[in-house]
Design a protein around this nucleic acid. Structure first.
Lengths: 207, 207, 207, 207
DNA sequence: AATGAATGAGGCTTCATTCAT
DNA sequence: CATGAATGAAGCCTCATTCAT
């Protein structure tokens, strides 16, 4: 169907995403405020001014990169809610696995960093993040718990918990890696196991 | 004889701390890179150049503010390890209380932000933070668990856990407040209660 | 096909030298430390920041201007050594002519000024100057004297002199012009004649 | 009569000269424009603001230091004209000796440097220098030549020379030392001998 | 589509100088 | 008399952004 794109054409179509990828690299390495268009351009292997053909401002790049990443993440989370088999501990572990994967490496970690540091000046993105991504994640965990209650594994009392507490260690791990990796790297796998055990032990204990 | 404090003198002595306080405000509001000396000066109610009478560079201000805060925090933590009476759940709750107090409001929150966003460029401060503050906190929790094992409340198995998992929700709460306060404020007290319950339930369950 | 030079291009190629010329003017008028990039930019008819497209720092401009000038000067001096015909007095006069021309007007005068005033902080340029330019000049004079001895005009005793003594009045004239031109201008031609006569008389007298 | 000054009093009277001495050091080390009041104050062992009790501006310090030095120099030169015994070569050597002494070390060297580099902006001092110091020096040399003619040592033709040519090498030596001392120090004594020989040989040769 | 050239706004820092003690 | 405190002016430099090719 789609004609095998000539390299010129292909280039043109690929540019925006290439720029976004380069920007994400730069943002991750230096933070948003410290990032420069020059740095992004270099990483993308293009000239500084070419960026302006696709994005109007530095902020626009961040926003585009963010929306781009958001969509993919939402899909992942949706899939994650659907696939659900096995006992609570197993299911929870699987969910946590995915969250760690996305948070410790990948785009999500970068945006986390940026939002924490410079979120004051970008309330719209913040709201979008909270609404589109975090909410979905919360719902996924909530659904997991409901299922546990339904099967009799968990006590209905677990419904009253703030599910964010159950995921918090993952965020902690992501940030620890970002900040202290050089001076004191975290054994993510071991930490994750502790995390799952803590939550499962606590919830299952409530009969 | 010598009048207790001529206003000139008194000012001079107070200045450094005034500047540090203003800087912390500014850093908290804009992040370190985005902060300007002009902003700090305005908040302190002095001129831009006056700052240079006390600190040589913007980095020096950050460092001074940090060390200033570090010392106070260490003292708090030390005191916290000492005072310890009651059952595990009560003690843990008290420790967590203090951590929330310092992390959600106050200096610690600001430095957290800065380190996450711009830590790459200040490895020395990062190392200091990890060594002087976080370690102390970890030890405090570790001591608590040992005490619980000693009194027979907790299983010795709890010793194998990474204690950072037990505190992670507090960091989460601190960052959530920083980032999402405007769009979706966190009920910190409720969250904290969940946090304590989760950890206590899990640990006490392991017999 | 490719038009010989689009104005954009041509400009770009000319810019560095334009900036250097402007800088030399500015340095000459104010000395190096007192010179400002704003002044250079104005003289060059460009904006302050445009300078940074071509030179990284003020020091870099000085260095570039200097090297630029050095090369031309060395070539002149080399040519001057080569062309040599006639009796000692005539030859010496010709060499002195060139030295005055370059020293009293032109780049050399500016660098003299700068080196005298601010040489402490630029030892590399100083060394280069001594090695690449002054040495060549000394050699030229030395060669002249050797030739005079060979032809029997001069006594071999002249070889023991420090040739810099023979040129010193030229430097004096250059500096006098720089410093006292407004208050008491020097009749350079007359002074130069005196200079040549002094040296020639002294050397030729030694039989 | 004069009470043996109490140290306080003595201090007060000495201050201006102490400041001048410190300023001269600083000017010599960094040039005038690069010198700072802070540097002068440190060298003088006093506070920055104390300087303002005695001198209104940086320029005023330069001027005061200069006038101070001028007076002493004039006296020296006057004395130098008076004392005159022996043949031309001997006398000339003695005069040149004094000039070297003052130019290569001491205040005069510093002012030379400053005037060359930054004279444009201080025409009054320049004029004063030309009038009060250089003129006197020229006259001293002129008188020497007249005496030589009178005693029959020199030809009356020597009267037509610009006497500055005869002293130029001394200036050259002074500047060389300032600029190239680190990279290629000048053997001042040898150079001076060459200088005297050159001038004497030339003048005495004209019969 | 892509880029090299150019610039204005703004940040950090230095320093001569004034003010109050 | 002496000084510590404070500041305004000015300089260097960076960077997002516009213009012309």
């Amino acid at each position: 169907m789609t004609k095998p794109a000539r390299s010129h054409r292909r280039r043109k179509e690929a540019r925006p995403e290439e720029i976004l990828a380069a920007a994400l690299e730069e943002f991750g390495a230096k933070g948003f405020a410290q990032s420069t268009l020059a740095g992004i351009a270099t990483r993308a292997g293009i000239s500084r001014t070419t960026i302006y053909l696709y994005y109007d401002t530095k902020e626009a790049i961040l926003e585009a990169a963010f929306r781009n990443s958001v969509e993919r993440t939402i899909d992942d989370v949706a899939g994650l809610i659907a696939q659900a088999e096995g006992d609570f501990r197993t299911l929870f572990a699987r969910v946590v696995d995915l969250i760690y994967a996305r948070l410790v490496h990948g785009d999500a970690a970068v945006f986390f960093k940026i939002f924490i540091a410079e979120g004051q000046s970008m309330p719209d993105l913040i709201a979008l993040y909270r609404r589109e991504i975090l909410s979905k994640g919360e719902k996924a965990i909530g659904a997991l718990i409901e299922r546990g209650i339904a099967t009799g594994e968990l006590s209905p009392a677990c419904r009253t918990d703030d599910v964010r507490v159950f995921i918090a260690p993952a965020i902690f791990a992501a940030l620890w890696s970002q900040v202290f990796d050089a001076v004191d790297p975290l054994d993510v796998e071991a930490f994750k196991a502790c995390h799952v055990r803590l939550v499962a032990d606590a919830l299952l204990a409530r009969k």
